[in-house]
Design a binder for these strands. Structure first.
Length: 426
DNA sequence: TCTGGGGTCCTAGGACCC
DNA sequence: TCTGGGGTCCTAGGACCC
């Protein structure tokens, strides 16, 4: 048996820890650039505010109902997430699945104690961190996700749902809509509905061949097996494997028209991506740069272009990667457009100590590595400024950064930045 | 006026190899 | 008329996740 623990309205719940007065009140957290709503308290959901809805569309409801609005504060959420995972590790081996959820191996727990174990997990996280979570327990990952979903939707279960017997699983399959299953998105849901498949029970009644044909091949067949209680996806306790792509993309707070400013943005994003690259001890051979106009604007002329440059020798040096990124940018930049977003994607990784150089390489790799180490060390020690921008960086990345994203309502980074630590007045 | 960011996996088809 | 068999690698596109 395994458990899937998922934090309720995670980002909103993190905000509530440090401002308990927000409990039972409608609260939302925004995406980068204060664009969309990406986390909602139950009260906000009850007001009809949708996931992913643009802030300006929800504005009327927000003002009328006095909804509290926060910019995202990922430093805080990331730190709270680490704490949740630490607690979970005391219950069994943990596979961290996302910032707010994890699978926990409960094979060592006797069947009779599973329910109690789940309740203890909830209580511990509530007591130590003041975060509400739901627990779903089942023999497969997909069923555990489903159990968690049921626990969340029906308060009568007290945040815990066990699908430990075939009988309970059969009942759950009849109550679960296919669109709520892990691995079934909007497209597949519509397709399944067209074929009169509405519940999970309907789905597993179809033959594996039918599922293969209509649900993305082997992925769908595995899904069906898992829903029947036969594991196809093992728990994975290994360290998160190195990423195969690393990207940094952002919308600008205002339109950009000049190459000079785009260069600043692209250089900034490249250094950020390169930093992540060095953290996982990789070097990249491919770098893609894209720029685009505002895709939502109906009148403005649209332009969306990307270019990929292959480095002769894989690199993790910010300065070198920036040079290639700017070269790619040069290829795609067109004057006369109002640019709204740009991004950098690093690809074709290899371990940094296995980089294949060539005979004609004149770069001082040793020096570059030392420089990067010093850069990362200083930035790690000195932290980032209020815009989460490194203290030491490249001049091409600019200083003013007029285009940087909007962050109007961010709470303090209570647990990671000394100047922002919570102050209590007695 | 205002619309996020960062990932993964799988398949099909083409090019190529022996 | 009949035209092998087995494989890899790459890319684009489509789906999904949080």
């Amino acid at each position: 048996m395994l458990a899937l623990i998922d934090c309720n309205n995670f980002f909103v719940s993190c905000e509530r820890i440090f401002e308990p007065g927000l409990k039972h009140k409608p609260v939302v957290v925004l995406s980068n650039n204060d664009g969309c709503i990406i986390s909602r308290s139950q009260e906000a959901k009850d007001l009809g505010i949708k996931m992913g809805e643009p802030l300006f569309k929800a504005r009327p409801v927000i003002e009328q109902a006095g909804v509290r609005v926060f910019s995202s504060n990922f430093m805080l959420y990331g730190d709270m997430s680490r704490r949740v995972m630490q607690i979970l590790k005391t219950f069994g081996a943990v596979e961290v699945y996302s910032i707010d959820e994890a699978f926990v191996d409960l094979t060592h727990v006797p069947a009779a104690d599973l329910e109690k174990c789940a309740a203890t997990i909830r209580e511990t996280i509530s007591q130590h961190l003041d975060l509400p979570v739901c627990v779903g327990i089942a023999p497969t990952k997909t069923l555990a996700k489903a159990a968690n979903h049921l626990a969340k939707k029906n308060p009568v279960y007290n945040g815990v749902m066990l699908l430990d017997t075939p009988a309970k699983q059969a009942v759950a399959r009849r109550h679960l809509a296919v669109e709520n299953i892990w691995g079934v998105g909007r497209r597949y849901a519509a397709k399944l509905h067209q074929h009169q498949v509405y519940t999970v029970a309907d789905l597993v009644d179809r033959s594996p061949g039918w599922v293969y044909k209509h649900l993305g091949g082997v992925v769908g067949v595995r899904l069906r097996q898992e829903l029947l209680g036969q594991p196809c996806q093992e728990l994975d306790f290994k360290e998160a494997p190195a990423r195969k792509n690393i990207s940094c993309t952002r919308s600008f707070s205002q339109y950009i028209t000049t190459l000079r400013e785009l260069q600043e943005a692209v250089a900034t994003y490249t250094s950020r991506a390169a930093e992540k690259l060095r953290q996982q001890r990789s070097a990249a051979k491919g770098i893609t740069v894209f720029i685009r106009t505002n895709k939502f604007s109906v009148q403005a002329p649209q332009y969306h272009q990307s270019a990929t440059v292959t480095l002769p020798i894989a690199s993790a040096d910010s300065g070198e990667l920036i040079r290639y990124a700017l070269q790619a940018l040069q290829q795609i930049y067109q004057q006369g457009y109002f640019y709204k977003k740009a991004g950098v994607i690093l690809s074709e990784f290899m371990p940094e100590h296995q980089v294949q150089t060539n005979l004609f390489d004149t770069t001082d790799r040793d020096k570059s590595q030392k420089l990067m180490q010093a850069l990362d060390k200083i930035n790690a020690k000195m932290g980032t400024n209020e815009w989460a921008v490194n203290v030491v960086g490249y001049a091409t990345a600019g200083l003013k950064k007029d285009w940087k994203m909007t962050v109007s309502h961010r709470s303090d980074r209570y647990t990671t930045h000394w100047p922002e630590i919570l102050k209590v007045n007695i």
